[in-house]
Design a protein around this nucleic acid. Structure first.
Ligand code: ZN
Ligand code: ZN
Ligand code: ZN
Ligand code: ZN
Lengths: 139, 139
DNA sequence: GCAATAGACGTAATAGTATAACATTAACAA
DNA sequence: TTGTTAATGTTATACTATTACGTCTATTGC
């Protein structure tokens, strides 16, 4: 699994990539590509492709993650930048918060399932839906 | 986690629901809502909503699963209809095949993570991408 | 310096996915 | 019958993503 490598030996970010990343880092929750576009119109963004191209690169280098079940994107909040396997996301259906986490055991389980089955694993998507601690308390 | 219950004490399927389910069961891989629509025009389907409404119900009762990372749907192939936790899907990027499986350990890991974190887990999405055994052999 | 190349960018058009809103019909109980 | 609910039909619209093509700029090789 080559995902989420955070290799810092890559080229510096371009202007558009930096603007998109900064916008995501300023936000707590996930953002859709089109809402990023709307918020960057003042900086000269005019078309979806400007956002999608930047996102593609940012996801590629691991600075941003895509949430498949939301069609949205979040800045990577993982404390360290070392390689880690099988990132997972817990998405609160009440407040929209997203918590990124990584459990070694889950990665091991998936890897061993793949080995037993002969499946060549390239990428995993793990997204949990429910209520975060705060929202459970309020309910 | 209340997903994938296959409760058979529910109302019988309506005509549209039955047509959509049969179409999915006839197909090996996943289908998008719009390709289902196209294939059911002969049976009187005219608009996306007819498909989406049927799919919503079918997903709800566990006869169909939605693949978030593909925006597509598959009929449930799980051998038994008993309740099971944490279904996962292995999607081949070469041939498009989808293998549904269920690992108790993964469900346990996620459940215990949720308990420790105070997250109230309602639904899990686990989708693996890579190459299936057959496609690895051919490569 | 000056082509040639590659990469990022800009822009317009289009493809693909999903839902809102409202009218109609069928099922069924009071 | 009449009121009520659920399913359906239909139109329009919103949201997400990519194709295609042209421009600009940096870098490389001569
Ligand atoms: Zn991360
Ligand atoms: Zn919450
Ligand atoms: Zn299933
Ligand atoms: Zn395959």
């Amino acid at each position: 699994m080559a995902e989420h490598q955070h290799t810092h030996d890559t080229k510096p970010l371009t202007k558009n990539q930096r603007l998109v990343l900064e916008r995501l880092e300023k936000t707590d929750g996930p953002l859709s590509a089109y809402s990023i576009l709307d918020e960057l119109r003042d900086q000269g963004f005019r078309a979806p492709l400007q956002v999608y191209r930047a996102l593609e690169k940012l996801v590629d280098v691991g600075l941003v993650h895509r949430l498949e079940s939301l069609n949205a994107f979040v800045a990577c909040r993982h404390p360290s930048c070392q390689n880690h396997q099988s990132i997972a996301f817990a998405i609160c259906e009440q407040c929209g918060s997203v918590k990124e986490f990584s459990e070694a055991r889950i990665a091991e389980d998936l890897t061993s399932w793949a080995a037993e089955t002969g499946f060549m694993l390239k990428k995993t998507t793990i997204e949990l839906r429910g209520l975060c601690k705060d929202c459970v308390a309020k309910a």
